[in-house]
């Protein structure tokens, strides 16, 4: 398979701050790479280097085999960028915004106009097409911005936090749009702070923090790094804790965590069978169970175990 995005040893310094400390990445054709990291991790810096907006201090990058430093114009013809902040001209209509982008790619007025209409229809903006985009909602603007990245149907699409600030419904719509893109063969680099988003959309994930990659793999591989599934039990009576721990010990891989009323134990590949056995034994012993379940690790767990701190959105989600 061809590497559509390839970068080695990217370094970028801003005075004392080193935004990137030797980042490598590669994205095979037709796949999605999720660049996952908290605020200030270096996501935007990486995006700006790959899209010719910024020159790295060290390292090399190619897009579809074209070197970013040697033939920036060639790179620009092959990429579509939707930056972190929607670059939508609020005084222009949705149609005008897209038509201008088409013209600047070198399309004729007729081509650019037809393409603009086509994209507006595809992104559910046909009704609003001839209204100044000032009147659009945040989600509509974001979609219009993404449409701008797709005008010339580039083989490589770079999206910097495409769903930050969107409500759950708009985010859902955005995910559908991105999935469609990938289905049609595009190669996508997507940055996000949402683990759920990387899990859902990305074939491969690179977790970055302080400008360096701290983990890489599929969502499942990353979860496996943190450990497999766990059985979690909460019982009503703390006096039975010794018995509960003993039952869990039967199936546990390693130690049983917790005590008192809440317990947690890592289990092997046959998690569901283990769960059934634990529940059977606890019920047979006449212990009242408040909650029991098999929990798969989320990318939040991955992040926490890799960086020693929570992702920035996890607190929000918890309180939402």
């Amino acid at each position: 398979m061809t590497e559509m995005i390839h970068a080695t040893g990217l370094v970028k310094r801003y005075g004392d701050v080193t935004a990137l400390v030797g980042l490598d990445l590669s994205v095979p054709e037709g796949t999605v790479l999720g660049l996952l990291g908290p605020n200030g991790a270096g996501k935007t810096t990486a995006v700006r280097i790959l899209t010719t907006l910024l020159t790295p201090d060290e390292g090399r990058a190619t897009i579809a085999g074209v070197d970013v430093a040697q033939d920036p114009d060639g790179v620009r013809r092959r990429i579509g960028l939707s930056g972190q902040y929607a670059a939508v001209d609020e005084y222009l209509t949705g149609y005008e915004n897209l038509e201008i982008v088409g013209r600047l790619y070198g399309m004729s007025a007729k081509q650019a106009g037809a393409r603009a209409r086509e994209l507006l229809a595809r992104f559910g903006l046909a009704d609003a097409a001839d209204r100044p985009s000032k009147t659009y909602s945040g989600g509509m603007r974001r979609r219009l911005d993404l449409a701008g990245a797709l005008v010339a149907e580039p083989p490589v699409i770079v999206l910097d936090e495409p769903t930050t600030g969107l409500d759950p419904r708009s985010r859902q719509q955005m995910w559908e749009v991105i999935s469609d893109l990938v289905d049609s063969g595009a190669t996508v680099l997507l940055t996000t702070q949402y683990l759920e988003e990387a899990d859902l959309l990305a074939d491969n994930i690179i977790v970055i923090d302080h400008g360096r990659a701290i983990a890489e793999g599929t969502a499942d591989q990353l979860k496996a790094q943190v450990g497999g599934e766990r059985i979690e039990v909460v019982v009503a009576d703390p006096q039975r804790s010794v018995e509960v721990a003993a039952i869990l010990k039967e199936v546990a891989v390693g130690d049983v965590a917790g005590g008192d009323r809440a317990f947690s134990a890592a289990v092997g590949a046959s998690g569901a069978e283990d769960l059934r056995r634990v529940l059977g034994a606890i019920t047979a012993a006449g212990i009242e169970v408040l909650d029991i379940g098999l929990r798969r690790p989320t990318l939040d767990d991955v992040f926490l175990s890799l960086t020693g701190r929570e992702t920035d959105d996890s607190t929000e989600e918890a309180s939402a």
């Binding site: 620009r76 990429i79 930056g83 790619y105």
Partner: peptide, 17 residues
Amino acid sequence: QKGFIDRFRSLPMARSA
């Protein structure tokens, strides 16, 4: 400020345009 220059600079258009 609004990021248009970034969008323009990511397009294969003339640098002086």
